[in-house]
């Protein structure tokens, strides 16, 4: 089975978030980037499990600049066989999806796996766009994935239970929590990653269809007000007039 796993980078959850250029771009100074956890922990690891059980090849793909190679090396250290970096800026979801689809269209992948979203932008649209551009079926937010005889069986959470879906391969599947368990790269994997192939594909720039005009931080959390337990009336007044929740 030939599997393509799309991996993106995301700032470490402990990063300090700041903006530059009149709040129109994210300030990357001092920010530590990690592999987007949904891509790494679930999509990539499940792809590796399927390959280990059934044979095949796992390719990881990123759209982005040179700074992406650190992320890609980690994916290779975890166990992907080879990697592709599409050398283009991550302008918006449609341009990223177009690059992925253009690369994947004649490569004969049985399965294209993505994380359900990145933890910084939470857009969740790349898997759907890739499926549409390649005219492939999509299962979004799969929390479980098995493959047998060209059919993928996915489970996903629905309100109050699970939904089981079957889809013929090739297909695009986006991974939610539960599909696999995080694998920490070991030293053998890190050493093997040194010599694994990383193909850099140069492309014509696709123009983005959307652009960011500005970012805003969420309002700072205001301090807690403590009300004496004996003073229920004050609490009610505050909830009513200040918090406006009752």
């Amino acid at each position: 089975m030939k599997i393509l796993v799309c991996v993106s980078k995301a700032p470490d959850t402990t990063s300090k978030i700041a903006f530059t250029n009149n709040n129109s771009s994210f300030d990357e100074t001092g920010v530590n980037f990690i592999v987007n956890p949904y891509d790494e922990w679930y999509a990539l690891v499940r792809a590796l499990e399927l390959k280990e059980a059934q044979g095949g090849n796992v390719t990881v793909l990123s759209v982005g600049g040179l700074d992406y190679e650190q992320i890609i090396r980690k994916a290779l250290a975890i166990g992907a066989d080879d990697a592709v970096r599409i050398d283009a800026p991550e302008s918006d979801a449609l341009s990223v999806s177009t690059h992925i689809a253009n690369y994947a269209k004649d490569k004969g992948f049985d399965l294209i796996l993505c994380g359900k979203e990145t933890i910084n932008y939470n857009g969740s649209v790349v898997p759907g766009m890739v499926a549409e551009l390649l005219d492939l079926p999509l299962v979004a937010l799969a929390a479980k994935l098995d493959v047998a005889e060209g059919v993928a069986t996915c489970e996903r959470e629905v309100t109050g239970g699970m939904e089981v879906l079957e889809v013929n391969l090739p297909a695009v599947i986006s991974a939610a929590k539960g599909m696999a368990e995080q694998r920490i790269p070991n030293m053998r994997g890190i050493m093997a990653a040194r010599t694994k192939a990383l193909e850099v594909v140069s492309v014509e720039n696709t123009t983005a269809t959307t652009s960011v005009s500005n970012y805003e931080l969420p309002p700072a959390k205001s301090a807690c007000k403590f009300v004496d337990p004996a003073n229920a009336a004050e609490l009610i007044t505050l909830l009513h007039q200040e918090a406006k929740v009752i």
């Binding site: 402990t14 650190q70 090396r73 250290a77 995080q182 920490i184 030293m187 890190i190 990653a193």
Partner: peptide
């Protein structure tokens, strides 16, 4: 735990150094 790197010393490490350190930390 999260690391502290006041003088941006990570910039003096290779990608492989950081991969090794972070894997050890996660483990």
């Amino acid at each position: 735990y999260q690391g502290h790197d006041y003088y941006l010393m990570d910039e003096l490490l290779t990608d492989e150094h950081k991969l090794i350190r972070d894997a050890a930390r996660e483990w």
